[in-house]
Amino acid sequence: MSEGLEVFLTFLRLGLISFGGGMANLPEMARTLIANGWVTPQQFADGFALGQFVPGPNMLAVVFYGLSAAGPVGALGALLGMFLPGAAGAVVLVHGWRWMARARWSRALRKALVPVSMGLSLSMLLVLVELGMDKPWSFAAMALATLLIYRGANILAVMLGGGVLGLSVSLLWG
Score class of each variant (00 low, 15 high):
69 A>K: 02
80 L>Q: 01
109 L>R: 11
3 E>H: 05
70 A>D: 06
26 L>C: 08
56 G>C: 07
122 L>S: 13
155 I>R: 14
49 A>E: 03
137 W>N: 00
49 A>S: 10
157 A>C: 14
81 G>R: 12
134 D>T: 10
101 A>K: 15
125 L>P: 02
111 K>W: 09
97 W>E: 14
118 M>G: 15
60 L>I: 08
20 G>Y: 05
72 P>S: 08
134 D>Y: 07
165 L>R: 04
18 S>I: 02
173 W>C: 03
3 E>Y: 04
166 G>Q: 05
70 A>S: 11
143 A>K: 01
172 L>G: 02
144 L>V: 05
76 L>P: 00
115 P>N: 13
5 L>W: 13
169 V>R: 01
93 L>W: 12
126 L>I: 01
95 H>Q: 15
105 W>Q: 15
39 V>I: 13
134 D>V: 05
50 L>I: 14
123 S>R: 12
136 P>H: 06
88 A>G: 11
173 W>E: 04
154 N>P: 11
20 G>R: 06
87 A>K: 10
42 Q>L: 05
149 I>A: 14
130 E>K: 01
81 G>V: 04
149 I>H: 07
121 S>Y: 10
102 R>Y: 09
115 P>I: 12
153 A>M: 05
68 S>F: 12
85 P>G: 10
146 T>P: 03
63 V>W: 07
112 A>Y: 09
101 A>I: 13
77 G>S: 04
108 A>F: 04
117 S>C: 08
99 W>N: 13
57 P>Q: 12
15 G>A: 11
89 G>E: 07
32 T>I: 15
61 A>R: 02
161 G>D: 12
42 Q>I: 02
71 G>M: 09
104 R>E: 12
118 M>H: 15
20 G>N: 12
128 L>D: 01
107 R>H: 13
98 R>H: 15
120 L>R: 05
54 V>M: 06
86 G>R: 07
5 L>T: 04
146 T>W: 02
79 L>H: 00
2 S>H: 09
138 S>A: 07
150 Y>H: 15
162 G>V: 02
57 P>E: 14
30 A>R: 00
68 S>T: 09
1 M>C: 02
149 I>T: 14
48 F>N: 00
156 L>W: 13
5 L>K: 12
134 D>Q: 10
5 L>D: 04
106 S>R: 08
82 M>D: 00
137 W>K: 00
63 V>E: 04
5 L>S: 06
70 A>F: 00
62 V>W: 06
159 M>T: 10
121 S>C: 13
52 Q>G: 09
86 G>L: 09
157 A>W: 15
65 Y>A: 08
73 V>P: 06
141 A>V: 09
21 G>C: 08
1 M>I: 03
45 A>G: 06
111 K>A: 13
166 G>W: 02
145 A>F: 00
108 A>H: 06
156 L>I: 13
25 N>I: 05
152 G>K: 11
73 V>Y: 05
140 A>E: 11
92 V>W: 12
109 L>K: 08
165 L>E: 06
68 S>K: 11
112 A>L: 11
99 W>P: 03
112 A>M: 10
145 A>M: 10
139 F>T: 08
58 N>E: 07
58 N>M: 11
137 W>F: 10
125 L>W: 09
118 M>R: 15
92 V>M: 11
6 E>H: 13
86 G>S: 13
135 K>T: 00
31 R>G: 00
